[in-house]
Design a protein around this nucleic acid. Sequence first.
DNA 1: AGTCCACAGGAAGGGCAGGCGA
DNA 2: TCGCCTGCCCTTCCTGTGGACT
Length: 425
Amino acid sequence: MVDVKSGSNGVNAAGLGPAPSAMTGMGAGSKTPLYKVFNQFLEAKPVFTNRDAMNISFTPDNIPHRDKQVEELGRMLAPVLKGGKPSNIFIYGKTGTGKTLVAKYVTSELEKLAAGKLKVVYVNCKMKHTADTEYRLLAQLAKEFGRDVPFTGLPTDMIYHAVFEAIDSVEQNVILIVDEIDSLVQKAGDEILYTLTRINGDLKQSKLSMIGITNDLGFIDRLDPRIRSSLSEEEMVFPPYNAVQLQDILKERLSLAANKESVSDGVVAKCAALAAQEHGDARRALDLLRVAGELAERSGESKILISHVDTAQEKIDQDRVIEITKAQPRQSQAILYAIVQLSQKDKNVETGNVMDVYSRLCSECGLKPLTQRRVSDLIAELDMFGIIQTQVVSRGRYGRTRVINLALSDALYEKMKALLKEVFY
DNA sequence: AGTCCACAGGAAGGGCAGGCGA
DNA sequence: TCGCCTGCCCTTCCTGTGGACT
């Protein structure tokens, strides 16, 4: 139960009165609508007893249907226990197939056994402003080894030396897990990988091994052959989960997170089936179940129903698109608003029309219009986010253009239109 | 077969902000 | 304070594309 102290006016620090059943000394706020909301929440039987276990970042002790991969990776990394350097490993697999989970699990178990002789560093190159450029990756590594470096400003070779010295300052094995490694190479080139895979030649008392993780199956083929051979000394492929395996994963998590009676029949199967349609994504399955549970709790029910899963699916998609839209810079929002306006009249929108409407919108809102070149890049970015779908088509002597479709449901389209209207008018 | 259109998209570089060491 | 370095956003210049038209 919540532990709150009443203030001088009888209202707790958050300005809310305590629940009558759980707390004594109701304050002045006890009759407010918000009070009822919180009271309802406190009195309702929770769906999840351990919410953290439903989180994507939670690392369980048992990873269903990944025994083979855990063992295989364990064998590859085992030389660490005798002070040897394991091979660099490359892990492929689509989103939500357990790559990161297995890598983190195996390395953390190894770290326990290695008794201070192993340091595991995890970096995610998709995290903006964290490790998505050469400089930032090196700065992040330097921080992991206790060197405080600014997020910009220093020459790259200075940061490299700081990292090098930090790694080699004690006799140890270092395993560097580089998640979403394709994002790093796309943005910063593959020189950094060349440097890191050859760092062992200069290290005197330490050894560095890399585990590269990507969901881009063609990534390794696009790498420079010199880097390819040293980065993927060992390779692992994580197959997608099928619906039955996803059900096992969800049941396993539910055993940690909720009581059996909190979930109706068919809920787990439905979440698993929906996620299996999306290339067997366990992350999606967990998200669906978690959001369905939260929706059930919010509606005052103590059991997740099939209808909650349906609503959860819609909500996850809507929330993602709206949040991405809100986070976009104003120029991208203006371009998106132009596309939304044009989509009202015609389903297929072309770059040229977007430029016209966008330019008009800019002059109406006092925004400096970008060049067609830049707009083209921003359209490609919106496509990447999944807000729009684009296809380059040739219209013969009438030129080449990009046909743009809004990838939104009717409800989401209206929501998006209202949001953008609010931004610009 | 050659021309044309309306872009797509790569490359190079400018300008700015944040940060460092001298 | 200055020179240098970085990331980021943007522009300019340029080549490539592919199907309709001549």
